[in-house]
């Protein structure tokens, strides 16, 4: 098994699917010869040719429309939006035209598109490069939203996303592209969409999180165990739409306490939906109110203060203590 960064694992998933299915196409700004600004598509144009891996003009709405048009004719486009803040230019394709195509045509046309975009704070990106906009995307009926936290999941989830017959938004956290290497199997394998994973078992409190916050939460869990012997369970959602309510509820029924950690600002986000699901399905098992650990409801913190803006392990530990001491 090879050791890969998440960037390399995503590259590998793209290669596997381009090789397996001639209907798969990869395009966006600078994804061709340059291999993408993070080298995620490095070498793929050379391998599969300019008809299948190519640069587009610098126009995100055009990229989105190209994807919807190609998908309506049976292709499986993987469309890269170079940075998350640029999706607003393509919102009509991402949140309207793609997700509605099956519904408004009664299944005659479908949109098996994967939109990919880097997102997330922590590497001091310029403005509108590192926002967490998954809440906006998850509100869209008909669009699945996936956020891997590690190289293994990234490859398996992306392969599943490309094979899915409906549109998927695949969010790649900037901080995770190169921060860790992990064992990633060669060739094809899938990680199912819509399935969360318990990444740390525990019996006292459940942390539900995704993306880069999985790592921060694991660090906090270790610290809480070392400092006060708390047994913290951590769930990596992996897919945030649809949510794996079953895994969340099972864990909360066991621990009776829950914290949701997200890197996005607080209001109307994924944490709110997770808590609503806990309320509907497990409120009588709760020993304490469910807490959210999030940045404040501001626009993402400026690069020079983003480290303070993003939740860190100590804020999560504090929340663990509050929930345990309730």
């Amino acid at each position: 098994m090879a050791q890969m960064t998440m960037a390399k694992a995503i590259n590998d998933a793209l290669r596997v699917e381009l090789e397996r299915d001639p209907k798969v196409m990869l395009f966006g700004e600078d994804v061709g010869k340059n291999g993408g600004v993070f080298r995620v598509s490095d070498g793929l144009q050379k391998m599969f040719g300019e008809d299948r891996v190519f640069d587009t003009p610098l126009a995100e709405s055009g990229i989105g429309g190209l994807a919807v048009g190609l998908a309506s004719q049976g292709f499986r486009p993987v469309a890269e939006i170079q940075f998350i803040g640029f999706i607003f230019e393509a919102m009509d394709s991402i949140c309207v035209q793609g997700p509605r195509l099956r519904y408004r045509s009664g299944g005659r046309y479908t949109a098996p598109i994967v939109f990919r975009s880097p997102f997330g704070a922590g590497v001091k990106p310029p403005e509108l490069h590192g926002d967490s906009l998954e809440g906006l995307l998850a509100q869209t009926p008909g669009l699945k939203v996936v956020v891997p936290s590690n190289p293994y999941d990234a490859k398996g989830l992306l392969i599943s996303a490309i094979r899915d017959n409906d549109p998927v938004f695949f969010l790649e956290h900037l901080k995770l592209y190169f921060s860790q290497k992990a064992d990633v199997p060669e060739g094809e394998y899938t990680v199912p969409l819509g399935k969360a994973k318990v990444v740390r078992e525990g019996s006292d409190v459940t942390i539900i999180t995704y993306g880069a916050m999985v790592h921060t939460s694991l660090k906090a869990a270790e610290q809480a165990e070392k400092e006060q012997g708390a047994k913290v369970e951590v769930i990596d959602l992996r897919t945030i739409s649809p949510l794996d309510t079953e895994t969340i509820v099972q864990s909360v029924e066991k621990t009776g306490r829950a914290i949701v950690v997200q890197e996005a600002q607080r209001t109307a986000g994924i944490a709110a939906e997770v808590i609503a699901q806990i309320n509907e399905n497990a409120i009588l098992k709760l020993e304490a109110p469910v807490k959210r650990v999030t940045p404040p409801d501001t626009i993402i913190g400026f690069p020079l203060i983003e480290e303070e803006w993003i939740p860190d392990a100590s804020r999560i530990v504090k929340a663990i203590n509050e929930v345990l001491d309730f």
């Binding site: 196409m25 429309g65 048009g69 190609l70 004719q73 486009p77 009509d92 035209q97 408004r104 046309y109």
Partner: peptide
Amino acid sequence: LIPQIIIGAQYVQAAGVAMAFKR
């Protein structure tokens, strides 16, 4: 395709449909 409601969306999609034929 089904009649488009968003003015202009059919234009960018036409590029995609045309690319499918060309490919």
